[in-house]
Amino acid sequence: MIWEVFRQEEPGDYHKHCGNVHAPDRDMAKMFAQIQHGRRMKTHSLWVVPQDEVGEVDDQDTAFGGTTDKAYRWATTYNRVDASFAKEVADSEAEQRAAEKKREASSQ
């Protein structure tokens, strides 16, 4: 049986997928995950999940975000106003700009 492993580095972080292990049951999966994924990388917590229990949809199955132009839902579209007056608004816009760049890079 294959178990997908998710590692959280610090308390409060997100658990991020870091690989998988073969194990006959949950306890063994937790033990193998510790050895394979929790030993060298900083680890606060690990999750193990049976691979069969993970549902997946990928970019071959669907067009994430749709196929129409959704520029209207991004802060980066509204350039007649300037976000720099409030740090939290500017931060949000910067995160959106970074996400936009990644999306554009992957569509090319």
Binding site: P11, G12, A75, Y78, V89, S92, E93, E95, Q96
Partner: peptide, 26 residues
């Protein structure tokens, strides 16, 4: 933690709301 994690996504999206709101005001 679940509250803070929700805020990550909320704040990511809210920048659009506030800038769009300002655009209407402008």
């Amino acid at each position: 933690e679940p509250y803070a994690h929700a805020m990550d996504k909320v704040c990511f999206e809210e920048g659009f709301h506030v800038k769009h709101g300002e655009d209407i005001l402008r």
